[in-house]
Amino acid sequence: MYRLNIYIGSGAVLFALVGLFLWVPQDTGTGLVVQVRRQVTIGDAFAPTIAFSLMAIGGALLLIEQRQHTSIKVPLAPFLHTAALVAVIAFGLLLMRHAGPGLLFVAEGFGGTDTEYRLLRETFPWKYIGYFLGGVTMIGGMASLSAGRLQARTALIAVAVTMGLIALVDVPFDDLLLPPNGDY
């Protein structure tokens, strides 16, 4: 049994103290108030100070709320499952970002092309490679992870859905860029 709310309350108070006494004073250009040409105005540190103070009050209230009754049972396994899910999403995003330029680099190695990715980002198939591979990885990976097994049917659905999204989002909208083409 975890005394989870006690931990959240204590963590919030600690984070607020770090914010109030270290982060805000060290990382803002002006203080709580600032004098510009004999006129006093609110400085950049004022609003974050209020926010961190609220955090401290919230944490303290949570500790008061929990004096008599705690708490929620939090098993570790679901966290691990979600961590694996986040890893699949992150891998999908990495593929999305690097698959197109990576394949172009390989094609250059074989003498297939000497054009940079920026010039190809609006041409078929380069404009779709990253989104397609990243999207298939995300949809197929998440569905397989949830089902606990890899299935050809899942992969086919992922391919079909990603192609459907490309048709839905890219084909009718000329100005809309699919990831990662806006980065180039």
Binding site: P48, L54, L61
Partner: peptide, 27 residues
Amino acid sequence: PGKGLISVALGLIAVFIGGGEDFYPRL
């Protein structure tokens, strides 16, 4: 209310990052 205030404070802190009127982007 404790968790509600923490949630509000997190939202405020997140929106204040990089903002402000000074040349240096705060937080």
